[in-house]
Amino acid sequence: MQQRLVDRHPEVPADQLVAQMVPPPTFDEVSFASYIPDPQQPSQAAAVLKAELFADQVTKLHRAASKKSLFGKKKPVSGIGLYLDGGFGVGKTHLLASIFHSVPGPKSFGTFGEVTNLVGALGFNNSVERLAANSVLCIDEFELDDPGDTMLVSRLLSELTARGVSVVATSNTLPGQLGEGRFAASDFMREIKKLGSLFEPIRVDGPDYRHRDLPPAPEPTSPELLAEKASHTPGSTLDEFEALLKHLSTLHPSKYNALIHGVSAVYISGVHTVTDQAVALRIVVLADRLYDAGTPVTVSGAKLDEIFSQEMLDGGYRKKYLRAISRLLALSRFEAPATAS
């Protein structure tokens, strides 16, 4: 019988939220050595060297913070910060995960949304205590479109760095603003004034590697072929777009990872342009979780680069929507192994 995502109702205990804060499977084995800088983009090689140096500094700081004085007290040490700023798909997450893998534990890795979900689930003080022993907190896709969330995370980072936790974050500069200098970096520094002097911004330029030297994303599949492909793909799910959107509205975004756990491929019928912002933001979170898991996505209906209306792409959440499109297009090029008819 064909599985559906809408039939899944995962529960994720709050105490598992910290334990699961590790790089996604796509970045399990990455390292500084496996990052291949584009020779046409010298900032990439420079970013690798800076990230390696940062990881070395974090390791030394963590060891120093762990040492006790003659009176049995730990020496107070403040954490350091690094901010990787650049366009979509230039390998910032690769570098972020490489830093994570290179430093001693305990350590945590999560998207900006996962960090805010953690604080929401555990409470602010509890989150601080659970992360305070870390050598580093890696935050992917630092977002500035929600002032409340931004200031919440700013306060969290202030508390953690004062207790010796180093922080490294990434963010995207919009493609149309790459020529305007450090757009994202300047916003980042302005929004977290308390931490402005802590973070050293590093630029990572280049084209989106997810689409470099690749053919255009495939056209949407016919509904009949979509159902046939799903039926011949073990472990896959097949959902109608509207039903899936309704189901997502019943789940906290922190559960989306559990929702797709173990799914080999996702098939969605009847995709159309979304005009409701709350719905669109749920699609963004789902796209992030699917991309982290490397789960192939095949659809019928509208093209995946038409899933968000132009009005949305021109609005305040433009960054999120463009990232989601980039990731969904990448996943649409994957093919899950199918069984014989």
Rank of each mutant, 00 (worst) to 15 (best):
S166N: 08
V168N: 09
T170Q: 09
S171C: 09
N172M: 10
L174W: 08
L174K: 10
L174F: 12
G176C: 03
G179T: 02
E180L: 12
E180I: 00
G181M: 14
G181F: 13
A184P: 05
A184K: 13
A185E: 15
A185C: 13
S186K: 14
F188M: 10
R190S: 10
R190C: 04
E191S: 15
I192C: 15
K193N: 12
K193Q: 07
S197C: 08
S197I: 03
L198G: 13
F199E: 00
I202T: 13
V204G: 14
D205A: 13
P207W: 12
P207Q: 12
P207D: 07
D208Y: 08
R210L: 02
R210Y: 10
H211D: 03
H211A: 04
H211M: 12
R212G: 08
D213R: 12
D213E: 15
D213V: 01
L214Q: 15
L214Y: 13
P216Y: 10
A217W: 04
A217H: 14
P218A: 09
P218H: 11
P220N: 04
T221P: 03
S222T: 05
P223M: 06
E224M: 02
E224Q: 08
L225N: 05
L226N: 09
L226H: 07
L226P: 10
A227M: 04
E228N: 05
K229C: 00
A230T: 00
S231V: 00
S231Q: 11
H232P: 08
H232M: 10
T233D: 09
T233W: 13
T233P: 11
P234S: 05
P234A: 15
P234F: 15
G235A: 01
G235T: 08
G235V: 01
T237Q: 07
L238A: 05
E240T: 03
E240C: 01
E240L: 05
L244W: 05
L245W: 07
H247F: 01
S249D: 15
S249M: 10
S249F: 13
T250N: 09
L251N: 01
H252I: 03
P253D: 07
P253I: 06
P253M: 07
P253Y: 09
S254R: 09
K255C: 11
Y256D: 00
Y256M: 01
A258C: 02
A258H: 01
L259D: 01
I260C: 05
I260P: 04
H261C: 06
H261W: 09
G262Q: 03
G262V: 02
V263L: 00
V263M: 06
V263P: 14
S264G: 06
S264V: 02
A265S: 01
Y267P: 04
Y267F: 15
S269G: 07
S269E: 08
V271K: 12
V271D: 12
V271P: 12
H272K: 12
H272R: 05
H272N: 04
T273W: 07
T273H: 01
V274T: 11
A278L: 13
A280D: 05
R282D: 14
R282F: 05
I283L: 11
I283H: 01
I283D: 07
V284Y: 15
V285I: 10
V285T: 10
L286M: 06
L286S: 06
D288C: 02
L290N: 11
L290E: 03
Y291C: 06
